[in-house]
Simulated assay, not measured.
Amino acid sequence: MFSPYYKFSGRHAPDNHCAINIAMTGPRAGAWAMTERGRRHVDRGADHFAVGPSALQWDGACLTIDIDEISAPIPARVRGRVRVWPMMTGGTAFTLDPAGRHRWHPVAPRARIEVAMSHPGVSWKGDGYFDSNFGDEPLEAGFIDWHWSRAHLRDDVAVLYEGERADGERFNLALCMDRQGEWRDAEPPPMARLPRSGWLVDRRTRADAGHTPRVLKTWIDAPFYARSAIATRLFGEDVHAVHESLSLRRFNSVVVQTMLPYRMPRIFW
C-alpha cells in the first residue's frame, strides 16, 4: 500500500507489487528490508504467502515467517525465522469509514513469538501482535492521518485507533479484548499529545486522566511515519504500549514519493 511503483502504475495489479517488510532495531541489530517483487515471484494460498525467498506459512497453530532479504539503502543480508503463536484470536474486522472502504482486522491481539535471526545474529522470545489492514481505495484517498497503539493489560489487550478521514471527519476506536477473544467497546481516555518525531510527524495518543505518557524509544522515524514504545496509563493500569502515527499528507507529497525507492527497491526481472 506504500509502494511508489504501484502508485505510478495506476494501481491496477496489486499482485505485481508485493513485498515482505522487516524492520529491526536495537543495540546489536539494526536492519530494514522491503524489496518489491512482481507476480512471477509471488506464490500464495490459503495457508501460505511467499514473495521471492521470504515466506509466511500457517499450520493451524503457528505462523512461521522465513526471512531472506537484503537491507536498503545499505546492502546487508537479513535472514532468519520468526514464529508466532496466537494466544487469542479476533474474528471481527472493523470498518474505519462509513462507506466501509477501509477495514482493520486485529487477527491475534495477543501472541507469543520466537525470533531467531542468523543475520544479524540475534534471538529472543516475547509478546507479539498480528493484524491486517485492507481496503478498496488508496489510504491517502481515505485518510489525512491516524494514530494507533496497543498495550497488553493484565487480563485484556487494549487497542486505541483514531485519526482524521479525508473529508475532515474524525474516527475514534477504543477496544479491549479478553482472553476468550471477545471485544468490547471502552470509553476512550482523554487525548494526550506526544512530542513530534524527528521528522516532525505529529503524534498523539490516549491516557487516563491526570497521566502524561512518555516516549521511551522511537524505533522507526520516517518522513511520514513513526513507530515508538511509550509508557502510559490505560484503564487503571500502568503499561508499555506500541504506538504509531501515520501522516498520509506527508506520504502523498512529491518529495516523499521520490525518496521511497531508496528504502523500497524493486526487482524488475
Rank of each mutant, 00 (worst) to 15 (best):
G121V: 01
D221L: 11
M117R: 00
R44Y: 12
S118Y: 00
P261S: 10
R204S: 07
T258P: 02
A226S: 12
L200G: 10
P14L: 12
F143P: 01
P265K: 09
V201H: 12
L96A: 03
R103P: 01
R83P: 05
Q57G: 09
D202N: 12
L260Q: 10
F224V: 05
H48P: 05
F94V: 06
I20L: 09
P73C: 12
R37H: 06
D167I: 01
A151E: 01
V159S: 13
T92N: 04
G210I: 00
W183G: 06
R214A: 15
P189G: 08
L153N: 03
R184K: 13
P138W: 02
M88G: 02
A93I: 08
E69M: 05
E182M: 14
A192E: 06
A209F: 01
R266E: 07
F49E: 04
L173E: 09
G10Y: 01
A229F: 06
W32S: 08
H102M: 06
D178T: 07
H12E: 11
F2G: 15
I20A: 05
D15C: 13
R110C: 09
W199K: 15
M24A: 11
T95L: 11
D97N: 08
A222Q: 15
R101Y: 09
F224K: 03
T218G: 04
S9Y: 00
M87S: 11
A93M: 08
A72T: 15
L139H: 01
Y225S: 03
A19S: 12
A116W: 00
A13D: 14
F251C: 10
E36G: 07
E137P: 02
S245N: 00
W104M: 03
A29C: 14
F143V: 03
A116E: 03
A99C: 08
P190K: 08
S9I: 04
T64L: 01
A93V: 10
N21V: 15
A166P: 02
G181P: 05
D238H: 07
P98Q: 08
G142V: 02
P223V: 09
N21M: 12
A226G: 04
R206E: 13
P223A: 10
V82A: 10
T212Q: 14
P213E: 08
Q257L: 12
V157W: 03
I220Q: 13
D97E: 03
R227D: 06
A151V: 09
P86C: 04
R266F: 03
W219L: 15
A231M: 11
G100W: 08
D97Y: 01
S132D: 07
R184G: 05
E187Q: 11
F8I: 11
I144A: 02
